[in-house]
Simulated scan of single mutants.
Amino acid sequence: MDHRTTRRALLASAAGLLTATTVAACAATGRRPATAPSATARPTTTPGSSSTPTATPTPTQTATPIARRPLPAGTVTALPEGTPGIAWTVDDGASSDVVEAYARFAADTGTRLTFFVNGVRPSWTDHADLLRPLVASGQVQLANHTWDHPALTKLSDQGIEDELVRNHDFIEQTFGVDARPYFRPPFGYHDARVDAAAARVGYSTPLLWYGTLADSGNISSDQIVGFAEQWFLPAHIVIGHANFPGTIGALPRLGKLLEERRLATFTLDDVFGR
């Protein structure tokens, strides 16, 4: 299936997906539906109601199952207030070695991760066999970070859609999952026009962060752990990157920090209903 065919299919299904997402958000917050997500929308921490439990946290963490909440409208930067752990998210994949290290770390420890994939990076195909069982079980979630990491605010509407659809194709064909509705705009650059274009192909939820490991560049393992000590706190969405070797050395210490603080890890699907 070429990208034009996929784009038509996504456009056809996105309307229903966006409507369902918006209605769920309005039921939780009492707000009127918006025609497009707002670039300045603040994350909501208003609890919804659901009896569907998530998977339990990792074996080394406090077992604290939580109920899924309705997905809020607009940009999400944090988990709902009271969430007893973090969403550890990982971007890019410039280093195949770091992607492998993250996958093995997850398999060994049970840590739940959300990867924001750039399909252009060979790392994701290099380690697809290692990742597939984790993705299939739901321990690892895949989300859309565009095909090759452009600043979306500098692209045309068609360019924005093409970036997301091409990456959607890659994720679906390689791992057999639908990454919608979450996308992370490269560099965090997005506005109402970007959000509207993304929503037209089903990517209705811009997902940012509330804490960073600051490892998009080449920093030391000690520095990464220092940032984790600052940001590994309940209800935080923390951004890391699979780009440089300092991350590999930090992973065991990051796992220990989670255990010491009794913080669970959650994927986005663990926390939010679609």
Rank of each mutant, 00 (worst) to 15 (best):
M1Y: 08
H3A: 15
R4M: 09
T6S: 13
S13E: 15
S13G: 13
G16A: 11
L17Q: 13
T21L: 15
T21N: 14
T22L: 14
A27Q: 11
P33A: 01
T40C: 12
T40F: 14
A41L: 13
T45E: 14
P47N: 06
S49A: 13
S49I: 09
S51M: 13
A55H: 06
T56Q: 13
T58G: 14
T60N: 13
R68Q: 13
R69D: 15
T75C: 14
I86E: 06
W88H: 01
V90M: 12
D91R: 01
D92F: 10
S96A: 14
A107K: 02
A107I: 00
D108C: 08
D108F: 08
T109F: 06
L113I: 08
L113C: 04
L113A: 06
F116V: 04
G119L: 08
P122V: 01
L130Q: 06
R132A: 10
L134D: 04
A136V: 02
S137A: 06
A143Q: 04
N144D: 15
N144W: 07
P150C: 07
S156E: 11
S156I: 03
I160M: 09
R166K: 06
F170G: 05
G176P: 12
V177H: 02
A179S: 15
R184F: 13
Y189A: 15
A192D: 15
R200W: 05
P206T: 00
L207R: 00
Y210F: 05
A214I: 03
A214H: 08
Q223W: 09
G226S: 09
E229H: 05
H241T: 01
N243Y: 01
P245T: 00
P245K: 00
G246C: 05
P252M: 07
L258D: 02
E259K: 08
E260H: 01
R261G: 10
T267P: 05
D270S: 03
V271L: 09
R274W: 10
